[in-house]
């Protein structure tokens, strides 16, 4: 089962695969709520975490730092991270700063499904 989590502090159900929507919160200190929710999911056993950027136009330095925190937490918990629906400019930024070395970047939902199918097969 896949759950879609809003970037809010209220507790979301934890499953092995979770989707967190980045929204536009990621550019502010309040974006730490997303990091908190991701960490909660990871600590509760989530093994495949998807951060959805469909509503995110721009990621600034605070956003990058928060995403690095999520990557670090996932790595510590032996989980994988997928960034989905990331626009071209943000993909370039992730590549430039090395985030893409730690995550899988999926362009859209169909590709994401394919990634998950591959994960299940492997």
């Amino acid at each position: 089962m896949i759950t879609h989590s809003e970037p809010v502090t209220s507790a979301q159900p934890v499953t092995e695969k979770s989707v967190i929507r980045a929204g536009d919160y990621l550019n502010k200190l309040s974006g730490e709520q997303i990091e908190y929710e991701c960490k909660r999911q990871l600590e509760a056993g989530c093994k495949e975490l998807v951060v959805n950027f469909a509503e995110t136009e721009l990621v600034n330095s605070i956003g990058i730092s928060i995403l690095l925190g999520i990557i670090d937490a996932a790595s510590s918990n032996g989980a994988t991270v997928v960034f989905s629906d990331v626009n071209e400019t943000t993909v370039e930024l992730f590549e430039m700063l090395g985030l893409s070395k730690h995550v899988t970047i999926a362009d859209s939902a169909p590709q994401l499904t394919k990634i998950w199918q591959n994960m299940i097969i492997s």
């Binding site: 200190l29 600034n60 330095s61 605070i62 956003g63 990058i64 730092s65 928060i66 690095l68 990557i71 670090d72 430039m96 700063l97 090395g98 985030l99």
Partner: peptide, 16 residues
């Protein structure tokens, strides 16, 4: 200060 640390980390891509 917390924001400042975020900004340094995010500006260069520093893990911690």
């Amino acid at each position: 200060i917390r924001t400042s640390l975020h900004l340094i980390s995010g500006a260069i891509g520093i893990m911690r």
